[in-house]
Amino acid sequence: MKKSTTFLFLLLAFVVFSCGEKKQIVEIKELATYDDPIMGFSIKYPTNWEIQKYPGDRFLAFTTKTVIKRFRTFDPEGEAGAKIELLAIKLPEGQTIDSVIAKKQFTPETYSAPTKVVIDGVEAVKQTYEFPLGDGVFHGEIYYAQKDPQVVTVISFEAFGSTFENYKAGFDQILNSVKLAYIPQVAPDTIKKVVEAPPPSSNLIEYKGEGFSIKIPDNFDVRNPKVGGALKSYQYIGERRLDCDIRIDIFDASKQNKLDKIVEDNKARHKNTEPKPTTLSGEKAYYFEYSPIQNVKSRVYYVVHNNKLYRITMNWFVGEEQNYKPIFEKSVNSFKFQ
Rank of each mutant, 00 (worst) to 15 (best):
L31R: 05
A32F: 12
A32P: 02
T33W: 12
D36K: 04
P37H: 09
P37W: 08
P37I: 10
P37G: 09
M39P: 10
G40C: 02
G40T: 02
K44H: 12
Y45C: 03
N48E: 11
I51T: 15
K53Y: 04
Y54I: 04
P55H: 07
P55K: 04
P55N: 09
G56E: 03
D57P: 00
R58F: 09
R58H: 13
T63W: 06
T66K: 14
V67L: 05
K69I: 12
F71W: 07
T73Q: 02
P76C: 04
E77D: 08
G78I: 08
E79F: 11
A80K: 13
A80P: 15
A80H: 12
E85I: 08
L91T: 09
I97E: 07
I97M: 15
D98A: 15
S99V: 10
S99G: 12
V100S: 04
I101A: 03
I101P: 07
A102I: 10
A102H: 14
A102V: 09
K103W: 05
Q105D: 14
T107H: 13
E109V: 14
S112R: 09
V117D: 01
V118G: 02
G121F: 00
V125F: 08
K126Y: 12
E130G: 15
F131M: 06
L133Y: 02
L133E: 07
L133H: 04
G134I: 03
G134Q: 11
G134A: 14
G136C: 08
G136P: 06
V137Y: 09
V137C: 06
F138W: 11
H139P: 00
E141M: 02
Y144M: 04
A145D: 00
D148C: 06
D148R: 06
Q150H: 15
V151P: 01
T153G: 01
V154S: 06
V154T: 13
S156N: 13
F160K: 11
F160W: 11
S162A: 13
T163Q: 08
F164Q: 05
E165V: 09
E165K: 14
Y167M: 07
K168T: 03
F171V: 00
F171G: 03
D172Y: 11
Q173F: 02
